[in-house]
Design a protein around this nucleic acid. Sequence first.
DNA 1: GTGGTCTAGACCACC
DNA 2: GTGGTCTAGACCACA
Lengths: 120, 120, 120, 120
Amino acid sequence: MNKHFQDNSPIYLQLIHLFTVRIAGGVWVAGQRVDSVRDLAMHFKVNPNTVQRALVEMEALGLMNTAGTSGRFVTSDQDAILHARDKLAREELAEFVDAMSQLGYGRDEISRLLDEHISE
Amino acid sequence: MNKHFQDNSPIYLQLIHLFTVRIAGGVWVAGQRVDSVRDLAMHFKVNPNTVQRALVEMEALGLMNTAGTSGRFVTSDQDAILHARDKLAREELAEFVDAMSQLGYGRDEISRLLDEHISE
Amino acid sequence: MNKHFQDNSPIYLQLIHLFTVRIAGGVWVAGQRVDSVRDLAMHFKVNPNTVQRALVEMEALGLMNTAGTSGRFVTSDQDAILHARDKLAREELAEFVDAMSQLGYGRDEISRLLDEHISE
Amino acid sequence: MNKHFQDNSPIYLQLIHLFTVRIAGGVWVAGQRVDSVRDLAMHFKVNPNTVQRALVEMEALGLMNTAGTSGRFVTSDQDAILHARDKLAREELAEFVDAMSQLGYGRDEISRLLDEHISE
DNA sequence: GTGGTCTAGACCACC
DNA sequence: GTGGTCTAGACCACA
């Protein structure tokens, strides 16, 4: 198995998530040109078609766009980026709280533990 | 791929995590007898040897013990359980904070967002 | 070149149009199961992946859906079908009127010619 | 593929159609001199022989004529032009009605929709 | 058998 | 060189 990915969900979905995190986190900044499909495919050791598919979906999500023959770019729509960041954060939050609840932690405890952890 | 597991890490490790969460979260209570290796293997659609290996490790971790021919039991050592719970919580915390940091959220923001989320 | 298609636009787009017309025109009725990806591919003498891509888009358009392992079906959403029919009709109308305008026909003439043609 | 044409039918036939529309629609007026074969070929990014062939056919159709060394001209025969215009219109009509029929529209509906569309 | 995914490799248009 | 499309063929999970 490719070190970048796990086998539970399709690689193209994992790529979408990975790209979205990069954009939401500002690693890929708005308006920036990203590497070519082929280069990304080489970097992730994945077939170019798989990257292509992920990038097409990124476009459908409004987070990237293609400039014909001159490459693909991160959207310049800051709102879209912020919205994506928000959504990802919400997902992380939900997962985290869910996992903590499974461990039997109540709301106050979760909040307290987080504050402790953060102030380390 | 088995729906219960992902392919990145060995299944027995995933089983250990799963069992530990159950014990830490109180789904399996202290001193309780757990299903037989065979039944667990059937339920998770996994080779009995894999379950067996996970249970042996649970014993090494001090979270379960075997009573000869009468089955395996969750430990009665409350301290061990609390310690495991603590460790899992710390891991979840670290993962969560890390993911949020990747999205560019600072300590205060994370704390604030969590409080908002929790109080919904 | 495949007799079913022309080379101007991608085959998968032509398939989407073709499928949409079939649904809008009632050749494929709401809720009906359509042939398998492989069968459609054989019939149109096209690669299964190309059909697959078209069907995925049909799903995104809300005109078809997939029932996991039991095949793909025309949507049961009559509204969606009517909406698609409407859209196609509008496109045909626009194209037609445009072509007639290019030939120098005015509104009244177009209308008159259509009535003549229809009543043949 | 050349953006002006599709690959299903020979380019010279498509040129004939294009020229005929121009004449029928009055873009090229009766008696007017048209660009040279070479210029037309350059404009459509097509082999001069292809343009040549189309023009010869236009002559056979009675829509153009050649005046030896001084170039080619649109016919001055108004009847021929009207006749061609009529034929094209009839084709467009037939195509349109056919497409609408495929969508399940009856004669009255087609007529009504056209009137609606036109009066926008 | 079904759909879903991935790979490898090819060709095209655009510039 | 870029992205876009298509084919051929493979493997998987589901049931």
